[in-house]
């Protein structure tokens, strides 16, 4: 039973064997400020899926965004959905696609965690608990 619970906590969500969200984490952020959530989506099925939205009670607004490069400059823009190809893993990662968490209701520090609900077109809702951390720490 203990091992089962540990395994469940490590995987932290699932769409029975078809779509898994792994390695979720988010950056620290001050109260009223923004932060970013990152994770991997592993699609084990032969059908595509789409991440349509993300919700969380920790912030006023949660959106999917992408960081983009324009010459030597970097910017960020909202994206309406993220396509997950069949039999592939899509990673939301620093400097790329991320979930923008806008207007934190409370500060998030290292070792805190936050819950999110990811809504996929086919897999439906997947709940994720993400720890707060920084790269290299």
């Amino acid at each position: 039973m203990y091992i089962f619970l540990v395994l469940v906590s490590l995987i932290n969500f699932s769409y029975p064997g078809k779509l898994e969200v792994k390695d979720a984490w988010l950056r620290p952020g001050g109260k009223g400020m923004n932060t970013a959530l990152y994770f991997k989506v592993e699609n084990k099925s032969d059908k595509p899926d789409t991440l349509l939205s993300v919700k969380s009670s920790i912030a006023d607004v949660v959106q999917t965004h992408e960081t983009y490069k324009k010459g030597d400059m970097m910017g960020m823009r909202k994206v309406n959905a993220i396509a997950i190809e069949p039999n592939s893993t899509f990673e939301l990662k620093p400097g790329g696609f991320h979930v923008m968490v806008i207007g934190l209701k409370e500060a998030l520090r290292k070792n805190d965690s936050a819950k999110f609900t990811l809504h996929f077109k086919n897999a439906g809702d997947i709940n994720v608990k993400a720890p707060v951390k920084m790269e290299g720490n």
Partner: peptide, 10 residues
């Protein structure tokens, strides 16, 4: 800038 969630924290 402090409202930046991705590049500036990096």
């Amino acid at each position: 800038y402090a409202n930046c969630p991705d590049i500036c924290p990096m």
